[in-house]
């Protein structure tokens, strides 16, 4: 378990490099996806705002062809996606336009990419039905 200081340094460099990367990495690890990662058809604009902005710009495409999990990704889960994918922006692969998988990673703004997979969905929490005010009061 002896640690080489140079290795620690290199490890730090690698971490920084990883943190700094945008979306050059294709979702090749999705080869192991157990469920459908569905890429919806639809308009291509990402209208995301707020905290989720920036990811859309990552759709620059690179190496995404390595994602051989495409066969899983294109499963019938598409039909079970919420309607948001039909009415909103498309599920643009964040590994690039040629990628066949998507992390479904967008969680903010108006981007509907987060609806591109129904895997693991526990149901929609309807804010209006629960009496959550909109807009929220300022605290």
């Amino acid at each position: 378990m002896k640690t080489n200081p140079m290795i620690v340094k290199l490890s730090a460099i690698a971490l920084i490099a990883m943190a700094g990367s945008a979306a050059a990495v294709a979702c090749s690890s999705n080869d192991n996806n157990p469920g459908p990662i569905v890429i919806e058809a639809g308009p291509s604009d990402d209208t995301g705002t707020g905290s989720s902005s920036g990811t859309s710009s990552s759709s620059s495409g690179s190496g995404s062809g390595s994602s051989s999990g495409a066969s899983n990704s294109s499963s019938s889960g598409a039909s079970s996606s919420s309607g948001a994918g039909d009415s909103g922006p498309s599920c643009t692969p964040d590994g690039g336009t040629s990628a066949t998988c998507n992390s479904c990673a967008i969680t903010g703004g108006n981007d509907s990419r987060n609806t591109c997979s129904s895997f693991g969905c526990a149901g929609k929490y309807d804010n209006a039905a629960h009496g959550v005010p909109s807009p929220l009061p300022m605290l």
């Binding site: 969905c121 526990a122 149901g123």
Partner: peptide, 17 residues
């Protein structure tokens, strides 16, 4: 299960509770 801002579904950390 947690539904983040603008998500259309609530998700558990795991595939089920």
């Amino acid at each position: 299960a947690f539904q983040a801002t603008s998500q259309e579904c609530a998700y558990y950390p795991d595939s089920t509770s």
